Amino acid sequence: MPPLLKLADRFEQASRTYASSNGIARDEDWFVLKLQEELGELTQVWMKLTARGRRRGLDDTALREELANETADLLGHILLFARRNDIDLPAAIVRKWRFDPGVDDIA
């Protein structure tokens, strides 16, 4: 199994556990709505970090940590969305980015 699909499986397991523990129904719409929500949260942190939003007492270090956390959330939800919709991300990356994410050919 390609590493990207293994990673998607790990996000799926964590998401399923979280949803079950919190009574969240992950229907078809949930996956795309979560993408939008997470992108909004990433944008909100970016606005604060670039002096276009209220920092609420957070310094650059705290905001950069939040930016990393929201980026991780967005990546996770992209992988969840692709997995739920049977999107072959490795094949799409080959088509669109012209490299194979399952091949370690970086010297």
Rank of each mutant, 00 (worst) to 15 (best):
W46L: 15
R84Q: 12
D100A: 08
A51L: 07
T71K: 02
E66V: 01
H77K: 08
P101A: 06
D73R: 00
T17R: 15
A68P: 00
R10N: 07
E12Y: 14
G53M: 03
E28C: 02
L7M: 11
V45K: 02
D27M: 03
A19M: 08
A68I: 09
R64S: 06
T61G: 04
G53E: 01
K48L: 07
R10M: 11
A107T: 09
A25T: 15
A72K: 06
N85V: 03
R56P: 01
L58P: 01
T71F: 02
F99R: 08
A82N: 10
S15R: 12
D59I: 01
D9C: 02
E12W: 14
L75V: 13
N22T: 08
N69Y: 02
A8C: 04
E66G: 07
W97S: 15
D100R: 10
L39C: 08
L79I: 02
L63N: 01
K96W: 13
E38G: 05
A14I: 05
K34H: 11
L42R: 08
G53H: 01
G40W: 03
L7A: 09
D27H: 14
D105I: 06
A14Q: 14
P2E: 11
T43M: 13
D73V: 00
K34I: 04
T50H: 09
K96G: 12
Q44V: 00
A91K: 12
F31A: 00
A107D: 08
V94F: 04
R98V: 12
F81N: 03
L42V: 00
D59M: 05
D27P: 10
R55D: 00
R83N: 09
T61H: 07
Q36Y: 12
L5S: 14
P3A: 11
D27F: 05
K34E: 15
F11M: 09
V94M: 13
A19H: 04
E41K: 11
P3Q: 08
D59T: 02
L39R: 06
Q44E: 15
L74G: 02
R98C: 08
A62I: 00
V103L: 15
M47T: 06
E38F: 05
D73M: 01
G76V: 01
L35W: 02
T43E: 14
D86Y: 07
E41I: 04
R84H: 13
W97Y: 15
E65R: 06
I24E: 09
L39Q: 09
T17L: 12
A92L: 15
A72V: 03
D86G: 04
A107F: 06
E12T: 13
L33G: 02
G40C: 04
D27W: 09
